Simulated assay, not measured.
Amino acid sequence: MTQTPVHPPWAVADPVGEALHVLRMTGTFYCRSELSQPWGFALPPMPGCLWFHVVTTGRAVLVTAHETVELGPGDLVLVPRGEGHTLAGSPGAATPSILTLEHATSQANYGVLRTGGGGEATTMVCGAVRFDSPAARTLIDLLPALVQVPAAPASRLGDVLRLIALEVEEFRPGGEAVLTRLADVLVVQALRNWLETDPGARAGWLGALSDPLVGPALALVHRDPARNWTVASLASAVSSSRSAFAARFTAVVGEPVMQYVTRWRMHLALDRMRAEDVTVAGLARDLGYRSEAAFSRAFTRVVGQPPGTARRGTSR
């Protein structure tokens, strides 16, 4: 009788969910907008950030360099890579830079915008968020230039939108904190919706995450990059033979197992250099290298320059 393989306690059953789990967001700015026709404004490019806009009442037109979308109550749109764009109450309306419009600011990263000519009203919640995890940024880079999620009341996303609409309509003490947290949930729910419905979410790196053999292994590397992973240990973790796992990984991901592990560690190292005052020795230790020299060789091979040079280049 064949026994069912027993997965180790660190095995990951839902690699795509794990990718969503690491979507740690830094709210760059959130804004509650009270607008009246005619109205419009332009939002500047914000590389490295994701813009989101949700209409709670009224209508809006969003225009990027590549497309135009019309939004109604309950509609949500993401601009994943921070491309500059305009929002207006109707096509052809004037769109001055939002930086020239006065905001009532109650917190460093939260404001209220009131503008327009006194006509038909539109209310929106907008924001720009930055993702802290390299896994999250890899996911964001795979999204289309614009993600539109039409209103769907009978859904979890619809539930979040209703809560946001209530907070906008009945703004109470602590409303800024509630709105910013709901906005974070909204972005994750919108990404979940895209992952579940768009065929593009089943290709490339995301397709690899969905693979029943390779996906759990990728999630293990993302979760614990400093572990002393080998092809054999990852194959064992997903209950596969070493040869079958290695062949499958290369076919699905497009590179060998350990090449991916090393590249991922170096992405993390670069990310740490940009965000923290870290030493090369500290990075080597934290990413599982026995010596600074071994880490430096791997870093130079992947990044194209020694870690000391890269570290100096990220200094402000």
Rank of each mutant, 00 (worst) to 15 (best):
M1P: 08
V6N: 02
P8N: 12
P9G: 01
V12W: 05
H21M: 13
G27W: 04
F29T: 12
R32L: 14
S33M: 03
Q37T: 15
Q37G: 06
F41V: 08
P45F: 03
P45V: 07
P45K: 02
G48Q: 08
G48R: 11
L50F: 10
G58T: 12
E67A: 11
G72F: 08
P73C: 10
G82S: 10
G89Y: 12
T95L: 09
L99P: 00
T100I: 04
N109A: 06
R114E: 14
G119H: 08
M124A: 15
S133A: 14
P134K: 05
T138K: 11
L143I: 01
L146V: 15
L146W: 11
V147E: 03
Q148D: 11
R156N: 11
L157N: 12
R162W: 03
L163Q: 05
I164D: 12
E169K: 15
E169Y: 09
F171C: 11
P173K: 06
G174F: 05
L179H: 06
Q189E: 14
L191T: 05
L195M: 11
R202M: 02
R202Y: 00
A203N: 07
G204I: 03
L213M: 08
L218H: 02
V221L: 03
H222V: 14
H222P: 07
R223D: 01
P225A: 13
P225Y: 03
T230C: 06
V231I: 09
A232R: 09
L234D: 03
S239R: 00
S240K: 02
S241E: 12
A244W: 09
V252D: 04
V253R: 09
G254D: 11
L270P: 00
R272L: 05
R274F: 06
R274E: 10
E276D: 15
D277G: 06
T279V: 14
T279D: 04
A281C: 02
L283H: 06
R285T: 09
G288M: 07
R290E: 15
A293K: 01
A294V: 04
F295C: 14
R297C: 01
R301K: 13
V303N: 08
P307R: 03
R312D: 10
R312S: 15
T314D: 02
S315D: 09
